[in-house]
Computed example of a mutant assay.
Amino acid sequence: MEFSKDYTVKDEHIDVQGIMDGLYYPFYMEWCRHDFIREVLGFDLEEQAHKGVFMVLSQYTIKYLRSLKKGDQFTVTCTLYGDKAGQPRLHFKQTIIMNGKVMTSAVFTGTCIPAAGGRPYLPEAISSLIAEAPKLEFEGIK
């Protein structure tokens, strides 16, 4: 199940070299991922936080292939994967694509934790969706 959103590079994200600062690529991916989590998984991060359920990242890897420039229009994709080892983790493969070329690729891994502290887990509603998702074979990017 692939999800995507379109964006335009914001002027304030451009560095002195005239390209988008590497810091901002994960932000665009986060915006897309959060929309995916809300719109597709039905998990509203703010609402769940008020209920004491925090969805957090545990790691990510990112590979920069090409630079974006001021005003570039691009698409961010997000695809959900379950955990091969059966751990309570969500894996999101994401790419930034412009003109049919992958500019950046990444894998973000997350889980849920109780706000009061405790062990990682996935709420039942998410666990049932993960059960049907493909399993991530490689925890990184190729």
Results as ranks from 00 to 15, higher is better:
V53N: 08
A116H: 01
G52E: 09
Y121N: 05
L65W: 03
E132T: 14
I37C: 01
E47S: 12
V40A: 07
E39N: 08
P120S: 15
L122C: 05
P134D: 08
I141L: 14
P120R: 10
G52D: 06
Y60R: 02
P88C: 09
V76H: 06
L136Q: 07
M1L: 15
M55R: 06
F138Y: 13
R33Y: 04
L129N: 02
T8Q: 13
Q94R: 03
L136W: 06
F108N: 05
P26M: 09
V76R: 04
Q17E: 10
H34T: 09
Q87I: 00
H91G: 11
K135E: 12
A115G: 05
P123E: 02
I62F: 05
D11V: 09
A49W: 10
A125T: 14
I141Y: 13
D15F: 14
E139K: 14
R66T: 05
A133C: 02
L23R: 13
V40R: 12
Q94M: 08
A125K: 15
C32T: 13
I19V: 15
Y64G: 04
R38C: 02
Y24P: 00
F108M: 07
D11W: 15
D83M: 04
L90W: 11
L90T: 10
R66G: 05
F108D: 04
E12K: 15
